[in-house]
Design a protein around this nucleic acid. Sequence first.
DNA 1: ACATTATTCAAGTGATCTATTGAACAATAA
DNA 2: TTATTGTTCAATAGATCACTTGAATAATGT
Lengths: 230, 230
Amino acid sequence: MQHNTPERRQQKEQLYRLFAHIGKALANPHRLELLDLLVQAPRTVEELAREANMSVANTSQHLQRLKQARLVMSEREGVHIRYRVADPAVTRLWLELRAVAKQQLAEVERTLDAYRHRRHEFERISADELRVLMRRGEVILLDVRPREEYQAGHLPGAISVPLDELERRLNQLPRDRTVVAYCRGPYCVYADEALELLANHGWRVARLEEGVAEWEQAGYPVERSPHPKP
Amino acid sequence: MQHNTPERRQQKEQLYRLFAHIGKALANPHRLELLDLLVQAPRTVEELAREANMSVANTSQHLQRLKQARLVMSEREGVHIRYRVADPAVTRLWLELRAVAKQQLAEVERTLDAYRHRRHEFERISADELRVLMRRGEVILLDVRPREEYQAGHLPGAISVPLDELERRLNQLPRDRTVVAYCRGPYCVYADEALELLANHGWRVARLEEGVAEWEQAGYPVERSPHPKP
DNA sequence: ACATTATTCAAGTGATCTATTGAACAATAA
DNA sequence: TTATTGTTCAATAGATCACTTGAATAATGT
């Protein structure tokens, strides 16, 4: 029985071409940023363009590559078209890609330190520790991402306080409990900025590195608000 | 506190560029084929070129891109240079990429059916079932990959019978037990070919879809032979 | 030292990718 | 209907990628 006929070769090549199609979708920094945003919450083209600092046309093109590779899907909503991650497996793929990057590129750590230059100032708390403290009611947990991201999914018991609103809402926070903040994940600075403000106002603070995706991937439950119709 | 200064933007972009560097390494079918081979066992450039049907120079170039992205590492062995996967996280990334492809591209299934046109002929057995039957001694488990791949890691209790040797060694197999065969994973045809031969000679046969990487990723133990020096 | 073998390097060409621009299209509101 | 807004399409130019070829390197054996 032959197992290296030209036809076999050709079919094998087609298979790898298909896999590479997904790889190609992951081969551009802008597309990864879009994907990263979509992992947090579904968004329209316009929103994505604004948040990723790209032209709308360019954003649209990149989204279409992601869509071709079936990493994201789109849905019309009146005049808008809302994109979302196509499947939880895509989120896992993205987390795994970042895990490889983190383990293997020392550069990432250096870049990250430059980017989040205050990130070692605050005590860090692990997911396990947080669960214990939350059960005992000893901490307040803040989700400092934009509200839509909170609505798309958040940690159980977390309060939505987008970074912009934090200063205004400081008086709503109990002074006698440690405040834990989280945001999009280890590469996001929102939580650090929130903690700095809180620390300056006298709170005891701690940072959770995990974002919702990492939390869910670790097997912990996530709360989702029903999607509000605009 | 500003969180969207131009410097922040720039640093964020650098971070995504780093991630995209890994994505780019995954953006070519040849590189994925090389990676797939390396997941099975370390190999020299020459071996890889032969098995992937590429020129040596081209293979070398692709390997260097993989190496730049720290997906593989290399080591001199006399005149040869042996490449290997840099880290288990890389294997997980590759499995996750394939999982996304499988879930999302219906084409994969169609291509796969064309490629492994006999794949529905044989009974399939799950990893769990296999473990039970192996414990009871009710099946023989064959690893039909090349011997070096077996040596780099195999399922506990598996016997190495490379496809080429199978016909010659038929008389060593007990006739009264079902033979289960596995190879590189769900996209590999070696096991199917082995099972066809065995079925034609009267054996009861079954196929395990998992390869060693999938098996290990599922949390089951893997046996590794000490590496023989040539 | 010399020849041999495995691998990498360097240069060149055609293919693919990316960002930009301005036009086209689709849904909504006036 | 017409105007408006969000999104996509089409064309283009510059950058990057992929494969080939032939030369350069590095270890080994004579």
